[in-house]
């Protein structure tokens, strides 16, 4: 029996219900956050981690209310700063499973600096970025992911800011894991959350999340069954890029350029198509840019997953090295290295 089995046996069998706190979620009816919360509660009992060893950290915004609704430890911090708070916690306590709930405003606008630096450092955090392309809690201002032209209370003539591409930003910042999921596709979201939990390093999961009040139907193009088939592609490791209602469309790489081919009409078969390799950063970079090209389907799934040392492991290793012979004592500390005796 492995250690892991022992731990699993020792733990009482928990279900999603065990992870619901006594607080009633205060999100609007129809908000995508409810569905995301449900999948988180579904996944947590499967991780083999006791609730007391899980911490949810958040910033400010609708998404950042997440910790209140989970029966784990939770800290609701300040706007934009969930990532450094989670990093400090993880560095101090590498034994904990640390999750971050954040949104497009929290993570990419006010917290943009922390976003890029956390990704390059790669502490072992599971970051769930609820992207609804709008500011919900402050009532409907545009966000750094809002589409050009979107009319909001602060962009009455339409948004003129070029939006962030979360995937490209993550990969460009040196992130070791990027995946995209959708609030409405619960089963798939659940599988992505599991992958994120298993990845050691900063797992960035962008979750398209509908805000029914201020930006309803922002993701409609990927939502209805018809739209979904033609406008999305679910990428899977070692599988060719095939999509479409009848699985008759594919994507191949012409040099660095992704091209959609019709498997029924063009002279291509699946063996000519792009085979997904989540360890290939160059391909992941191209995949990240699909969102900027309307001719291409929107990818969902794990774009990139790189095994790289985590920040807290590297630091702990340096400390172990420094303590190889002996830990420093208080006496030694006070005396210092350049003390002298006056006789």
């Amino acid at each position: 029996m492995t250690d892991n089995d022992t731990i699993m046996k020792a733990l009482p069998v928990l279900t999603a219900k065990n992870f619901a706190s006594d607080q009633e979620p205060k999100w609007c009816p129809g908000c995508g956050d409810h569905a995301i919360l449900q999948q988180i509660k579904n996944v947590l009992p499967e991780l083999g981690v006791a609730p007391e060893n899980i911490v949810f950290v958040s910033g400010i915004g609708c998404s950042s209310r997440l910790p209140y609704y989970l029966a784990t430890y939770g800290v609701h911090g300040i706007h934009g700063r969930a990532l450094p708070m989670a990093t400090g916690l993880k560095v101090a306590r590498p034994d904990l499973s640390v999750w971050v709930g954040t949104g497009d405003g929290d993570a990419l606008s006010i917290g943009g600096n922390h976003f890029i630096h956390t990704l390059r450092r790669n502490p072992d955090l599971n970051v769930l970025l609820f992207n609804n392309e709008i500011y919900g809690l402050t009532k409907g201002q545009y966000s750094p992911t809002s589409k050009i032209g979107l009319r909001t209370v602060t962009s009455p003539s339409g948004v003129i800011d070029h939006p962030f591409n979360t995937a490209a930003l993550t990969i460009g910042s040196g992130g070791s894991f990027f995946a995209r999921a959708f609030d409405r596709d619960g089963k798939f979201l659940r599988s992505i959350l599991q992958r994120a939990a298993l990845h050691r390093g900063t797992s960035l999961v962008e979750i398209y999340q509908n805000c029914p009040i201020f930006n309803n139907a922002a993701f409609e193009a990927f939502a209805t069954p018809e739209n979904k088939a033609s406008n999305t592609i679910y990428v899977e490791q070692d599988k060719p890029f095939v999509f479409g209602k009848d699985k008759n469309r594919g994507i191949m790489l012409d040099g660095f350029k992704p091209v959609v081919v019709d498997l029924d009409k063009d002279e291509f078969s699946t063996s000519d198509l792009w085979i997904h390799d989540e360890k290939d950063i160059n391909k992941a970079s191209i995949l990240a840019r699909f969102a900027d090209d309307e001719a291409l389907p929107r990818p969902f799934g794990v774009f990139y997953a790189e095994e790289r040392v985590t920040y807290e492991d590297a630091l702990s290793q340096q400390i172990r090295d420094a303590q190889k012979n002996a830990c420093g004592t208080l006496e030694e500390l006070l005396k210092g290295e350049n003390s002298y005796e006056i006789k």
């Binding site: 911090g77 450094p84 708070m85 560095v91 101090a92 600096n113």
Partner: peptide, 20 residues
């Protein structure tokens, strides 16, 4: 932890303090 800015400096410390 040499943070990316002063804010991350204190906020990471708050995270560590929360962790004990």
């Amino acid at each position: 932890f040499q943070a990316e800015d002063e804010i991350a400096g204190i906020v990471s410390s708050i995270g560590a303090a929360y962790g004990g």
